[in-house]
Each structure stands twice: as C-alpha cells, then as structure tokens.
Design a binder for these strands. Structure first.
Lengths: 342, 342
DNA sequence: CTTGCCTTGTCGAGCGTTTTACCGGATGAA
DNA sequence: TTCATCCGGTAAAACGCTCGACAAGGCAAG
C-alpha cells in the first residue's frame, strides 16, 4: 500500500507543496477558493499529514507527558482519574495529545523523564508521581524543559506546581472534629509525600491551638499506598496505642474506609462510638454506610489548572508557577458529637 | 540553547553519522571498541536522538494508542486501571510508549481513531471503549492498521479482540447462587456492551436449565455507567417489581455495591435476607461489609495479553485474534443459603 | 601472488513536512 | 506613468535520523 503524502495532494490539486501545507495549517495567507480546492482532494483521499515529519520540521510534538505513581492498582484511586480527566480535557482542547507513563523503578533508573523531553517526544511534563524521595527531580530546577508537579510540591526545590491547599484542608478537618467535641483523636497520616506531611503538621498544630482546649492527637503512618488495607492496619495500631480515641482522621478517603471497616470488624459503631473522617471526597464516600465525612478536593480542577499552567510555561507566558487550590468540608454520617461520658 | 544532534556526536567521536546511528540502535555490525568510544561522547553530552526524526526515517513511532471509555469518573473503576497497567507493562518492555485517549463525542466525531493511525502518530490501537453503538469501528474491519478490542467484542464484525470469558463467568455465578438454593433472583445487567449482553443471556440460560429446578430471574438494566448509583437505582426497581427476591446478581462489583447499599438503607441484612453478588473482584470488594462474593476477572492479564496480541498483529506474526481468558468464583460473606421459609 | 570472502565502517539518498525568502501581478497614490 | 505596497502563491532549504549499497582492509586458501 503506497502511503499518500502532501506531494500527492499537491500534484492532484495543481498547487505547490507549500500551498498544501499552508492550507493544512489554516494559514491566513491562502485564499478561500484555493483552500477549498485543496481540501477537496484532501478529503477525497482521507489524507492525514505524517506527524513525525511535522514534528521534525516544526520542532514540536504537540504531546504532553503525564507521569503517574507506581502504586499497585494505582488507577483504582479516583484521585488519579479525576486529575487525568482534567488534564485530558484541557490538553485536547489545545490540540495536544497525552503520553502516559508510570513512575516505575525502571522509569526512574533509566531517566526516562529526561529522555522524553530531550528526545522531544513530549513538549512538556506533568508529574503526578512525586514522593519525598524523588530527589532526581532536581534536574528540572532551572531546566529548559517545561515541567510541573501536579498536586504535589517540593519544599526546598524550585519546581513548578499546582496543588490543593492541604494545610487549609487540615484546618477544616480539625475544626470540624474539634467543634464536635473530640479531644482524643487518632490521625492516620500519609508521610511519603510532602503534601501528606503538610497535612499532618497543620492538623497537629490546629488541634494544639484550639481555643476551647487543645486536643490530644496520636498519629501513625498509613503506609506507602494510602490504601484501605493501610488504613485498616493503622487503625488497629491506633486503637491499641490509645484505646480511648473518639475520632479517627485519615489523610485520604481510602484509608478512612479501611478504618471504618476495622470498626465494623470490632463491633464499634460509627459515629456513635468513634467518628471517622477522610480527605478527597471520592465517589464511593457517599455510598458507604454511614456516608463518609470528608474534605472535598476538586481534583478535576487541579488537572485543568495544571495543564493550563504547563501550557503557559511552554509558550513563555509565565516563568514559574506555585498555585494552591481551595478545599471544602463535606459532612456525612461518619462523624458525630463526641460520645457523652467520654 | 543549541540542540545537539547525531552529527555533533559523530564529529566529536571521530566516526561517521551512520556509525553513531548504528551504535544508538545497537546494531551488531559495530565493534565493541567503536561502540564504547561513541557511547562515551553520547553520555558526556547526555544525548538523546530526536524521536520525530527517528520516526520519520524509520516509519514507526514506537507508540501504541490506548482508547478508554468516556464515563464520568472513568478511572475510579479499577476495571480500567488493571487493564492499563497490564498494557503499560508489556508495551514498555518492548520499547513502546502509550498514547492515551478518551472516547469522547469529539474524539469519535472527528474520527481521531483513524487520524491517529493514518498520521502514524501511533503504530497500533488498543480500544477499551467499545459499546454496542460503536458502529464506526467498522472502518477497522480489513483495515491495514493494527487494531484490537480489549475486553470487548463485536459479534458480526471482523474485529480482533482479547476478552474475559463472560459466558463462563455467568455460568459460574449462576451455579453458585442456584447451588445455595436461590430460585428468585434479580439480575442487574449491563446492556450497553456486547459482553454485558452475553453475560445476561448466559446467566438467564443457566438459570432456566438448572437440573435441580429452574430459577425465576427478573432482570433490569443497571445504567450506562455500571456505577454504584446505577446499581442502587436498579435494586430499588427490582425490589419493587419482585418483592420476594432472595438474591441480587449484578454485572459488576460497583453495581453490586450499590445494591448492598440499598439493602442497608432499607434495613435488609446481607446475606441473611438477600444475597448479593458482583463480577470483577475489584479491590474494595474485600473491604466492604460483608465482603462481596464475586467472579474474579484478571484484567491485568487481559491488558498483558491484549498488548501481546497487538504487537503480534503489528509484526505480522498473526493475522487475527479472538482470545477468551478464564475466570473464577470468589466466595465472601455477601452470599449465603436461601433464607428458610422463602 | 591472486582471488574471494568476511568484518567493520562510511556514503548518501531518502523520510514528509514546515517555513523563510522570494516573485509576479494587481492596485493605488503621487 | 511610475513606484511602492499588498496579495496569493511557490521554490527550496532545512529538520535529524535510518538503512541499503558500497568500500577498505585483513586473512585464508589455492
């Protein structure tokens, strides 16, 4: 099968190579009548210009690299899906395609993140996979390549980011639980990301400085994957350390679901015996029993905004970016007033 | 910033353009000593060959297109994540990258699926997004482009596919419930995919021809998105139509979770009053209360296998593909013997 | 000393676009 | 009439790599 090229279109339509190219790129230089005659031939052959040739000549791949974390079953976390949907929406509307990568050990060791941009396979990179050990990202400080962290940040590194305001989420959550009278609180923290650490520290701070009396907060780590399983194990640990806890705060909804499951398995009622609260407001949070109180993070919006900012970095409209997006409290059935007599 | 090319490497290392190219492609023609001297320079400059130029000259983009369904919050379904992880694993190991697309209305109307392959932006396509209305896919019958449906199929169209054996799943599920004595069963079906229809029809058939006595199965549609919400609504409808149901069979776990939620909201015990069963064995199925009985679909394996087959189609090792992968029963707490006296 | 073959490296013609000059003709003002 | 300007289109030089054809040199066999 002979592959058609712009040359065939030129020959058949009677115009030059350049003219066809200009038509295909909607260049204003070309008159409507010429445009029509060329497009007729283009449609007749269902012609689509070769993207490699385009990329070579134009020095742009019209492609964005998106790197996601290497958690087992990573997609099951709505967390990611929302962000990616947002990115896709924005990227597509600007004529960009998405090249997906997973931050596996192999991906990092072979420095794919550099290779992708250096080889011009992608014009810019959105990185959703940063944990506190991602020191290799320092290559993107002052790098000529457009790079942006999505819902992560790296204190001490000059890296662009768009993220939800985790400190504000921590305050909202703390105020909700404290306002319900809780003073003995267990915190299941995520400590493998900087945003997780920010959440933990701000939550502790808010509980310590509560006007109506400081709360006693015990925290444990919820595990690398922020999963139900991790939340379950962390809850077991907390309840062992401090049997009198009246509330469990988890750094995301999945761990909170693990906590609720532990309560059921140990014949404790939520929220009568213990209140449980999460963060993110994933879809299933409204479908468990009781519904999970949580902090809403609009991750779709994070995706949109992150992609927007990356595009601005790419065309030079901005030089750097450090956006924090707002969050809000969602109250459902899993939190209630502290049990009387406790 | 001057971008380095293969030419600079050639000059600096004292070899020809072609030699550098051959080294970079690990061609056996080149001796070890030459290879070493070239690679030294390559590393010195952290050089990465331009992928557009490579693609243009080699007529291959080393990229696979993956198209996923346009469900709102689509990623929240572990269903997809598992498949994509499998695809990624396989594709990466063969040096291919993944170009992600979502089957939005825009994607379909603008015939992006053709454009991607015709413009050589991707060398082959894995389509996870097929519903019964995807008639436009007929363009891939006898198309020169490698194309494969993932966990879907299209009776009546000559399209390659790799899918789980839904008919076998239906039999396993039916046998489990019938074996527990259930004879009045509600089925929440997914009717917008051919695999969903196959499941429904085979489930009905199996229930009708059960040796120990046919069951009375009532089925309703669970909605386009196979979601908790849809499962919840479908359960309401079923329980209204047939108040005496002793078991609910849902075509996926998410709808089953919706069904369980409905039971809780209406003070019915699972499985004491009604058994509930799903399909897929998503991660959370083990974490709800009671644990969800289901049919395990190894979707990671589907991804691996699908990618394998596509690569074989691409290099001509096979001409067509219609694989069905096995499934298995997983019994947890949500199904039990039919209540006595019912 | 030929001849032929093998090994290793080089030449150079593409690959299919974009984009910068440039050009001819029409238009309009002086 | 002349000259500058504009308009619509074209020629051709990149863009950076791959790969088939070819060449040089070494070596073994006759």
């Amino acid at each position: 099968m002979k592959r058609r090229t712009i040359k065939d279109i030129a020959k058949e339509s009677g115009f030059s190579l350049s003219t066809v190219s200009l038509v295909l790129n909607n260049h204003p230089r070309i008159s409507q009548s010429t445009r029509d005659r060329v497009m007729e031939v283009v449609r007749k052959y269902d012609f689509h210009p070769n993207s490699a040739a385009r990329g070579l000549a134009s020095k742009s791949s019209r492609t964005l690299s998106v790197v996601i974390p290497n958690l087992s079953r990573v997609f099951s976390d709505i967390y990611l899906g929302e962000i990616i949907s947002g990115i896709y929406e924005r990227a597509t509307s600007q004529g960009y395609k998405i090249l997906l990568d997973i931050a596996t050990a192999q991906f990092i060791e072979s420095q794919e993140y550099s290779k992708l941009l250096a080889s011009r396979r992608a014009d810019g990179m959105l990185f959703i996979a940063s944990d506190i050990h991602a020191d290799y990202l320092h290559v993107f400080e002052d790098s000529p390549y457009p790079f942006l962290l999505v819902n992560h940040l790296f204190p001490g590194k000059r890296l662009n980011y768009v993220a939800v305001d985790y400190a504000s989420s921590a305050r909202l959550a703390a105020e909700h639980l404290l306002g319900l009278g809780h003073r003995r609180i267990g915190l299941i923290a995520g400590t493998n990301t900087h945003t997780g650490l920010i959440f933990r520290d701000e939550f502790l701070r808010a509980c310590k400085s509560w006007p109506a009396g400081a709360a006693d907060v015990t925290w444990v780590d919820g595990g690398e994957e922020w999963s139900q399983r991790g939340g379950y194990a962390a809850t077991a640990k907390l309840m062992d350390l401090k049997p009198g806890l009246t509330a469990i705060m988890a750094a995301n909804d999945r761990m909170a679901l693990g906590a609720m499951r532990w309560m059921v398995d140990h014949h404790l009622e939520v929220p009568e015996d213990v209140s449980v609260m999460g963060v993110d407001d994933i879809q299933i949070a409204a479908y468990v029993n009781p519904g999970l109180s949580t902090i809403r993070h609009d991750l779709y919006q994070v995706g949109i905004e992150a992609c927007n900012r990356l595009l601005q970095l790419m065309n030079g409209q901005i030089k750097e970016c450090s956006d924090l997006l707002p969050t809000s409290l969602v109250v459902r059935g899993s939190t209630g007033r502290v049990p009387s007599g406790k």
